[in-house]
């Protein structure tokens, strides 16, 4: 089982590094957001609240961008048949989850580092900030694949994903923004992270249970 999941993750990484289109798009997106913010604000000192808002805007769109292609590309490349025959739906789901989590956490840490470089923000609890950011990226990344699978065979995929995912993300984002503000202004409350984990846990468990229905025709 773990082997199958690992194989799916490996396959994702290999495919990604063959053309690197997604990686470049996401990196470009991050850099553009950071640059636009830097240009328009014209000052290095920004309010911590604003900084948290930027982080979350970038995080949400990273998740959406990387999710939009994930399953749709399989159908376009017609690699679905291979996945169907070689591994179980379970392995596909968890493989995608692990890959998305890794991807988003990696890119988000780059984006946050860039934001921190460009702006001067006084952060009360650096460890708390990175912890919240890490947990948020992991949970967002893990919640994306089910929506990505839902839209894979519909028309106007790219437009539909944010519409579908946003309302379900909101409770997580609400808690995450609150938690990150706490970390930046005073100190992190661990219970916020636990609440986030509980909410995302329910969604991800349900997604894992339901994934087979999307996957098998």
């Amino acid at each position: 089982m773990l082997l199958a999941i690992g194989a799916v993750v490996l396959k994702e990484i290999v495919v990604e590094f063959r053309n690197r289109s997604l990686l470049y798009t996401l990196l470009l997106f991050t850099v553009v957001v950071v640059l636009i913010l830097a240009f328009s604000l014209m000052e290095k000192n920004i309010a911590p609240e604003l900084f948290v808002a930027f982080c979350w805007i970038v995080l949400f769109f990273l998740a959406i961008q990387s999710g939009a292609r994930s399953f749709a590309a399989e159908y376009e490349r017609e690699t679905v048949v291979l996945l169907h025959t070689l591994v179980s739906g379970y392995a596909v789901f968890w493989g995608k989850v692990v890959y998305q989590v890794g991807m988003i956490t990696f890119l988000m840490s780059i984006a946050a580092a860039l934001l921190l470089l460009v702006f001067d923000v006084s952060i009360a609890s650096i460890a708390g900030f990175w912890l919240t950011l890490g947990v948020s990226s992991i949970l967002m990344g893990a919640m994306v694949p089910i929506f990505s699978a839902l839209i894979a065979r519909s028309q106007m995929k790219g437009a539909l994903l944010p519409v579908l995912a946003f309302p379900v993300f909101v409770p997580l984002m609400r808690l995450g923004i609150e938690g990150m503000l706490d970390a930046v202004l005073e100190q992190l409350h661990v219970q916020t992270l636990i609440l986030m984990g509980a909410y995302a846990g329910i969604v991800i468990t349900l997604a894992a249970m339901l994934f087979d229905y999307v996957w098998r025709e």
Binding site: R153, M156, L206, V214
Partner: peptide, 24 residues
């Protein structure tokens, strides 16, 4: 989501899954 899927069987199935996930 329903609007964007034409095949009835698939539409019903995807919509059902979204209804369950969204209800959380």
């Amino acid at each position: 989501l329903r609007q964007s899927i034409e095949e009835p069987q698939r539409r019903a199935q995807i919509a059902a899954i979204y209804a369950i996930v969204a209800f959380v």
